[in-house]
Design a binder for these strands. Structure first.
Lengths: 244, 244
DNA sequence: GCTTTTATTTGACCTAGTCCAAAGGGATGG
DNA sequence: CCATCCCTTTGGACTAGGTCAAATAAAAGC
């Protein structure tokens, strides 16, 4: 068996931190020592230290909040998009504390992409609802909902920090019946970065969903920007669901 | 309207490179000037230059091959996992050149995770097939297939660089009938990093699929490690498929 | 006890390099 | 024409700092 190649300094630091985490000494949500303190502890520079943290971050083991610190990651939320997107219920089922904070409501002009996604004519107006979702006290998800206003008159007067699914059903008699998802890695910009407490350009996981009613008409389009250590998507084909 | 905050140097470099790419001056697959050349061009350090490239990378606009250079990204492959995973067909449908290279075949002891996924007893033996997939001449995906050997006797004697879907059907009379997918961001390690031409710890998108036959029995488990600029997953609920 | 102010801590961003090992290209020899 | 060797180029990894602005904590005042 060939001798394993020597670990880089960053790799050794990563391994040492992982040992502390896996050994239960650093708990989910617990803050790591500062970059400067860790650099001193490992007798290295902050550049090398950040390299090690960056790998742990890519692995989903730690996360950062811009200018606040590095923290040990929580377990990923299991998100089965084909089985509904009721955030509170998903969290409850997985013993997680969920919170939703409404950031804003406004009408916007639909971008060409949104016009195509929602099948509305150019220059259409849409409701834009911005919400920040947390799990166990830390921000995990930022969502921008784009709603067709003719389907949801007077929505700005409702309590939009609660479930939109339930609001649609109770107030408008509208039920989600189908959805299409696009899933891809992306980078946090502007308000997204801000809402997720990330630096501009930080990697995230984007889930875009276009929802329809039973008649097949579009209802809304949601852009879900997930911290990528926060979620694990599970998708099953129909027959698989029957087999389980 | 508030004055936009001044861009960082890295952000300005990112914007300038993006302008060259969006203006058609740098083409998909085309190599960027070296880090040193770009650092000189923008009168900055390689550290700052790499910061800018890192953001473009997270956005899926450029990609790197370790010690070979930075390149302009190709369009993402649209991958609808619920509608089959025939790589060649997907690529053909999107005017992309696909290639598959067999890296190795061996029998391995199933890990606990694989025992659970494939519902086999502890200490089970599995076939492990490793393949590297390219689009338009560049590596986009590395896959590790784990097969139940009793379902696929003598598979090591087959041409494993071609479609496994077709091989299962023709040689073994077995058809995929259902699948469950787990999708999450991860970090490239060891052979994964090597096969994808990435440095250890680079971010990737992991798609794990457990496939079953018509009777619901497990067939194999695939780990798909995607360069995260290479793919866009599309998933639709059954009713949505009917509406389209 | 709450609000405001001040000080400290935090990660972000940057400079200016060095050295290393892998990859690629060119030259040489058979 | 192919293989081998050598040289150059490439990104990876690292050092040793610096400054900035946002966040937090502590102190002071009411």
């Amino acid at each position: 068996m060939t001798e394993p190649k020597p670990l880089s300094q960053a790799a050794r630091i990563r391994a040492a931190l992982l040992q502390q985490i896996d050994g239960g000494l650093l708990r989910p949500g617990g803050r790591l020592p500062s970059e400067r303190a860790l650099a001193e502890l490992f007798a290295t520079t902050r550049i090398t230290l950040k390299e090690a943290l960056g790998v742990l971050e890519a692995e989903g083991r730690v996360y950062r909040e811009e200018r606040r610190g590095w923290f040990v990651a929580f377990p990923r939320l299991e998100y089965a998009p084909l089985h509904g997107n009721h955030f509170q219920r998903m969290a409850d089922a997985q013993q997680r504390a969920a919170e939703t904070r409404l950031l804003g409501v406004e009408t916007v002009l639909a971008s060409p992409e949104l016009c195509r996604a929602l099948e509305v004519p150019p220059l259409s107006s849409l409701w834009k609802i911005r919400r920040q979702r947390s799990l166990d006290g830390r921000v995990a998800l930022y969502v921008e909902h784009f709603l067709r206003p003719e389907r949801f008159p007077d929505i700005q007067g409702q309590d939009l920090s609660r479930s939109l699914t339930e609001l649609y059903r109770r107030r408008y008699g509208i039920e989600y019946a189908a959805a299409v998802f696009d899933i891809l890695p992306a980078a946090a910009q502007g308000r997204v970065a801000q809402a997720l407490m990330l630096a501009e350009g930080s990697p995230i996981l984007l889930v875009r969903r276009v929802n329809r009613d039973a008649a097949g008409a579009t209802l809304d389009c949601d852009y879900e920007y997930w911290r990528h250590d926060a979620v694990r998507l599970r998708v099953d084909s129909p027959a698989a669901a029957a087999a389980n």
